[in-house]
């Protein structure tokens, strides 16, 4: 598939997955891949403190939008921007839009908000989603990428709209919830990309989340991203002594054992990973994008480019 076609299939991509699977890394890589295809990307974070800014070698960002990567016309590369969205800030904006700007401060300080938020579960989520819907409508970027809360929470986050449309029958909250439902239910506007590691528990949880999202939220699912796959490496099956002899090299004391043990470990884990990828394919009929494990160093712009390239390779293979 052509990357431009892939990234514009829906204007909002929601990246979701369990904690620790590299959701934020994948968000960053998807944005980088879109930008490399000439499409501007805007990343929206809802939890803050994710380390996303560091991956782009840029200072931390907040409610104000920042540019993580400048566009480069010579390379055909578009910009990557990012911002954080918190429920409190979304709420103030919502109240202002609803003509209640004057009392918004009082609402916050009196604790009335806490009470309202408690009385109507999901109200914080719907405010954030409502704001995202607004950003999507305004076409603030070619691709809007939402780094969603960790799975489990992601389901209740995305389910908040249908719950609220029922609980609050009238008024601006109801309208907001309906708009969000329209957004989530329209594959041309929104899709969810689930992220997992090629390991047993994360795969199980991903499959469960996928079905829950389809059944309960009715949102369309894009490809699944399998993160952290060991890259293939030739020569690991060879006997270290024989391999050294073939090169006329001599090994140091204990080196043959170290080389063999490390090779065995990688081969074993690669086999286990392949098993999990296969199990995921059988359990969930969705295309997969594979992102490699990086031994290199901590993630920076250079590593992000490698991950983005892997995403683009995967996209090219999609039918």
């Amino acid at each position: 598939m052509d990357p431009a076609q892939f990234f514009t299939a829906s204007r909002l991509v929601i990246v979701a997955g369990k904690g620790g699977v590299g959701k934020t890394t994948v968000t960053a890589a998807l944005a980088r891949a879109a930008a490399a295809s000439g499409l501007s990307a805007l990343i929206v974070e809802v939890e803050g403190k994710s380390g996303l800014a560091a991956m782009y070698g840029s200072p931390a960002f907040s409610y104000d939008e920042v540019t993580l990567a400048e566009p480069d016309e010579a390379l055909g590369r578009a910009a990557v921007r990012a911002r954080t969205l918190t429920p409190d800030e979304a709420l103030i904006e919502f109240l202002e839009d609803a003509g209640m700007g004057r009392i918004s401060k009082r609402l916050m300080t009196s604790g009335a908000l806490d009470m309202v938020a408690t009385a109507i579960p999901g109200i914080r989520d719907i405010l954030v989603l409502g704001k995202i819907k607004q950003m999507e409508r305004r076409r603030l970027a070619d691709v809007l990428i939402l780094d969603a809360p960790a799975a489990g929470h992601a389901i209740s986050f995305l389910q908040s709209a249908s719950g609220l449309a029922d609980a609050v029958r009238l008024g601006p909250i109801n309208a907001q919830a309906r708009d969000v439902l329209d957004l989530l239910g329209d594959p041309a506007r929104c899709q969810v990309v689930l992220v997992t590691l090629p390991e047993e528990t994360p795969v199980n949880e991903l499959v469960e989340t996928a079905y829950q999202l389809e059944d309960r939220v009715g949102v369309s699912l894009g490809p699944v991203v399998v993160n952290g796959l060991y890259p293939e490496l030739a020569g690991l099956g060879a006997d270290p002594r024989a391999a050294a002899e073939a090169q006329g090299a001599s090994l140091r004391d204990g080196e043959a054992a170290s080389l063999a043990a490390a090779a065995r470990f990688r081969l074993d884990r690669t086999a286990l990973q392949a098993e999990q990828v296969e199990r995921l394919r059988e359990a969930l009929p969705l295309p997969q994008l594979r992102v490699p494990y990086l031994f290199d160093a901590d993630l920076g712009p250079e590593q992000l480019d490698l991950l983005a390239a892997a995403v683009l390779d995967g996209v090219a293979e999609l039918s």
């Binding site: 490496l233 030739a234 020569g235 690991l236 060879a238 270290p240 024989a242 391999a243 050294a244 073939a246 090169q247 090299a249 170290s258 080389l259 490390a262 090779a263 470990f265 990688r266 031994f295 290199d296 160093a297």
Partner: peptide
């Protein structure tokens, strides 16, 4: 130094895990 040979692959792998 041994890139493209079995030994090169074995060293590369050991280097990867040493780095991690």
């Amino acid at each position: 130094h041994f890139e493209g040979t079995d030994l090169g692959g074995l060293y590369r792998n050991l280097a990867d895990f040493a780095l991690v």
